[in-house]
Design a binder for these strands. Structure first.
Lengths: 219, 219
DNA sequence: ATCTATATTTCGAGG
DNA sequence: CCTCGAAGTATAGAT
């Protein structure tokens, strides 16, 4: 990884046209050839960048980064204040826990966390417009479609609504009711869901994770 | 901006739980207090980060970054290979061209690019749930609501659908038909739009930009 | 503070 | 390879 501190201007021409006036910035050139330009604020997003695969050509203080699609990132160096290179090696990568896939997995194992008497029919129940996260039966044998999200927003309600209108066209399934299950449900999403007869369930991830593996052998 | 090259492990506990095994990485501490951890690949996204506002406390080789919500990023430093600080100052920021606002502007000047005989009623036509990008009249005086996107996806169809159902409740406007206008329209969005009677128009940005300022004086 | 809409979104999975 | 959905999405703007 090469770290350059430089006063420079930057021009990007590709999916849009963008320009950075002259200022002192950090330029990162990574081992995969990618280049990013950082200001002294915001942790996540660079001011400007070119994603790999791409190639850097330096000529006379002008750095030109290009990719296969023809996008160009041009850095015009006015003054280089520092230029250091470090060998980092390949990163072992991030281990995550607590994302939507994991929530769905936990709920599939404990559908009764969504409501008493709920049992799983199947995960990723296929429909013409995509799979429903969970399809369940309630205590009376009625069908329940469950949309699992980390955060419940309007999009999730719309998505579930589309599934429900489709599933309810199937006389073997109808009537199908809906549940939006999420760790956090935005007020507006709750309003829209309620308006459409969709139940909202707030999930406690830690409690779910702490539940006994299966309750089926209690008796 | 402080640039640290170090062998370290990283643990994040917050919206999810994540762990980075020991490896050599770049740690950026920016003037706004934000911290990010970069591997030697990918220009855009850090391996791990904490967005501002947040605060870093160093104690005995353990860096703890916390924010107001109680999320924690913990870096355990095993070996610091470099540690340099540079003054960068405030960045003048990025100047963009070619985004949705510009498309909307061009279409407002040339509504007939959306269909023959279309004329503009107004941009950002206000409704209870937000402004419609463009409201137009067609050749017969009928109302047309236009949603402008750089890329047309399902969200855009849903958004326009909500506007249309609202606008059609107004007897002075109804019937209102919809147009989804975008440089690129995803297949699923096109299917959903068609199913709902919404017309899709693919935009040629360069052609739009090249059109004569106004055609009203042709005769 | 909350919600909405955008993004050069990036990233990964699945057909 | 394209398409689609998730992301600790982040970020900016409006309410």
């Amino acid at each position: 990884m090469r770290l350059v501190i430089a006063r420079c201007t930057v021009d990007y021409v590709g999916r849009l046209t963008a320009h950075l006036p002259s200022a002192t910035r950090l330029v990162l050139v990574k081992a995969d050839g990618s280049v990013s330009v950082h200001a002294d604020d915001r942790a996540y997003k660079p001011l400007n960048w070119m994603s790999p695969p791409c190639w850097l050509r330096e000529a006379d203080g002008v750095w030109t980064v290009t990719n296969k699609v023809g996008e160009r990132l041009v850095l015009t160096m006015e003054e280089v204040l520092a230029d250091a290179t470090h060998e980092l090696g390949v990163d072992p990568g991030l281990v995550k826990d607590g994302v939507e896939a994991h929530l769905q997995e936990l709920l599939a194992a404990h559908p009764d966390a969504l409501g008493p008497g709920l049992t799983l029919v199947r995960r990723e129940y296929p429909t013409a417009i995509g799979p429903v996260d969970l399809l369940c039966h309630d205590a009376d044998g009625g069908c329940v479609a469950v949309e699992v999200k980390r955060r419940g927003e309007i999009d999730g309600v719309e998505q579930l609504s589309r599934y429900l209108s489709l599933l309810n066209r199937d006389p073997l399934l109808a009537p199908v009711v809906g549940i939006l299950a999420a760790q956090e449900i935005r007020p507006q999403a709750r309003v829209l869901a309620t308006d459409r007869g969709i139940r909202c369930v707030a999930l406690d991830y830690d409690a779910l994770r702490g539940m006994a593996p299966t309750d089926a052998t209690l008796f």
